[in-house]
Design a protein around this nucleic acid. Structure first.
Lengths: 353, 353
DNA sequence: CCGTACGACTAGATCGATTTAGTACCGCCA
DNA sequence: TGGCGGTACTAAATCGATCTAGTCGTACGG
């Protein structure tokens, strides 16, 4: 091996017979070098397979060229939420297109979460963060403002937030599921909800209630759950134990719904004749269980991509000297999710096929 | 706001009435400052809520304090592999304990993957990487060696690799599943395998074949698949269409197994009387479908944690001046997975309960 | 009382890029 | 010929930390 150390901009400059500044100009496409020289410099750089050291560049330009994503989940349950993997994939897709990086943190509790944001901000590891799983009265908003760390939220929080948000009208999907059941003739419709302290848990519940109210009904029962299969199974068991069980259950998430199917099956409930079930998200498995799950198809990859785009735009504006955080007028709107009707829903008491 | 710029080490030094060097010494716990002064400096730093700028530090010490994880999956299928989320969580858990960061990349094809590793190495964004989904004759090993980027692989590749590996004897789990079926009296045992170009796909298949061979049998049929639910469904359909269908199917992954249950159900096959099914991984949903899935419980979080630990150790050794990559003697061995027997397996032709 | 060894600390170099301020040269016009 | 403007470049400052070489006392041994 000729040299063990990697080339620096100085090596390239020497090899090309110019100053380091010229190499920098050539690389970043700014005026100050002739086209001939620029081409020569780039050729030499390529031959030496030199790329600017990200650390040095980041330090000089005061930008990390990276965004952060802090996932607040107990490490045990994260695996079972297919939402995250696609969210991450979506964020990454956009971020890498800009030659940025994604820094990921998984935290288990609020203190750790707080500390992580502080570390990311103070060490300046990232230029901004994506905030997912927005909570009701989410303390992170204020915290991030105080830290001066730009952010983008998934869904616009109900409490004021100075950050742009990626918005999806998932109420529409939830209401479509309820309407579908109503159209089939169901009247005893129960809901297995997500935690009420999560904005999307609450929103989906409200959507169910609103659509039922529009038909002059109230939920037959609402069981609050936590989006896991285990909790979904418990919730369904609870509903089936009612003196007058529901004829249909609307779930706030697919894993809960699939677990619900399992419990019903185990109890000898005929599906979908005795019980209709709907989910939310349309995970891959949803179409492959029995009966295949009627659910609301969301595109969590698009969410991630949308959030990353909004964040990159926001940071570009700030790099351009605009100190504003963006706010509502920079919200990104995604197409609403749509209902996917499969075999897990049928008119109440329908005859077996 | 008093000052818009964040404090630097110079500000802290000024406030504490010492030089910048003293602050650095105090912070990093090295000799050169008295205990009294050290305490004062740390107090001042804390009051100013100063933490060293990661970019500057990284540049000076020539370390990124970050590890990379490049996931090679089509963005569409990543969501459906619960393995990744826990793997990531496990890596993150260890990495954050060392105040490092995890940089994540998702790539869709080989070229992009190559380019990503090159970028990570040349820009020096990370100090090392975790290589998952090791492929047969994996080209990444040589590539990483050429790039001088330290790595740790998940499982020891069959082809020589200079990097440490995290090892789990998952053959044991697979063989246990087969033995369980043999003990129940099954003889027509089929296997829905992962892709043969993935080391763990191939390994699991070999394990099935080996255990059957030990009983003087061969697989009733082997269908190669790709770990997705859709492929699992197709595979099971194919097996059920055989003139003489198997009485039991061993799957290389849970999503495939769950989809297999769905297909069997839809065809009116009685489970588990007419068909026993096993999975691999024990995802949360596995215990909540009907019948609950007999599967092999793996701990992918431990995998991630083990890989991260091995990588951090490797990098620490290198920082200590040891240029070696580690190799086999630094492999981390994890406890073997164990079989979880649930309701999806029974003696062939068992009477319905 | 001198030499020196050590502890405590400072000044300045350094990492590898970008960026600013300046210089050299050429062409052109009056 | 001199001045002006623009292009093509260079030299040096800069980002914020760490690390090295050196300074200044003070204590200690002979």
């Amino acid at each position: 091996m000729a040299r063990s150390t990697r080339p620096t901009i100085a090596d390239v400059a020497r090899a090309a017979g110019v100053s380091r500044g010229a190499v920098s100009f050539a690389l970043n496409g700014r005026p100050g070098v002739s086209d001939r020289t620029r081409a020569r410099i780039l050729r030499v750089a390529d031959e030496m397979s030199w790329q600017p050291d990200h650390r040095a560049r980041a330090m000089r330009v005061q930008r990390a060229q990276a965004v952060g994503l802090v996932l607040h989940r107990s490490v045990d349950t994260i695996a079972d939420d297919p939402f995250f993997a696609s969210l991450i994939a979506g964020v990454e897709q956009v971020v890498s297109r800009h030659a940025w990086s994604l820094v990921l943190d998984v935290v288990a509790d609020d203190d750790e979460e707080r500390a992580t944001y502080e570390r990311l901000a103070r060490e300046r590891r990232v230029d901004g963060v994506v905030v997912s799983d927005v909570r009701v009265d989410d303390p992170r908003i204020g915290h991030l403002v105080a830290l001066g760390l730009p952010a983008v939220t998934l869904q616009r929080p109900t409490t004021p937030s100075p950050f742009p948000a990626v918005r999806v009208d998932d109420d529409r999907g939830m209401r479509a599921a309820v309407r579908h059941l109503l159209d089939l003739g169901h009247r005893r419709i129960a809901h297995v909800a997500g935690p009420a302290w999560l904005e999307h848990g609450l929103r989906r519940r409200r959507a169910v209630e609103a659509e039922l109210a529009a038909a002059g009904l109230a939920p037959h029962a609402v069981v609050e759950s936590d989006f896991t299969a285990a909790a979904g199974a418990r919730a369904t068991a609870q509903l089936l134990d009612l003196a007058e069980p529901p004829t249909a259950v609307v779930h706030a998430g697919d894993p809960m719904a699939v677990a619900g199917l399992g419990v019903a099956h185990a109890r000898g409930v005929r599906l979908p004749e005795d019980l209709s079930v709907t989910g939310f998200d349309d995970v891959e498995l949803a179409g492959h269980v029995h009966p295949p799950l009627t659910t609301v198809r969301t595109d969590s990859r698009a969410w991630g991509a949308g959030a990353a785009t909004a964040l990159v735009d926001l940071l570009a504006r700030r790099a351009g000297g605009d100190d504003a955080l963006g706010g509502e007028e920079h919200d990104v709107h995604l197409p609403p999710p749509e209902l996917v009707v499969r075999g897990s829903t049928a008119p109440p008491g329908a005859a077996a096929t």
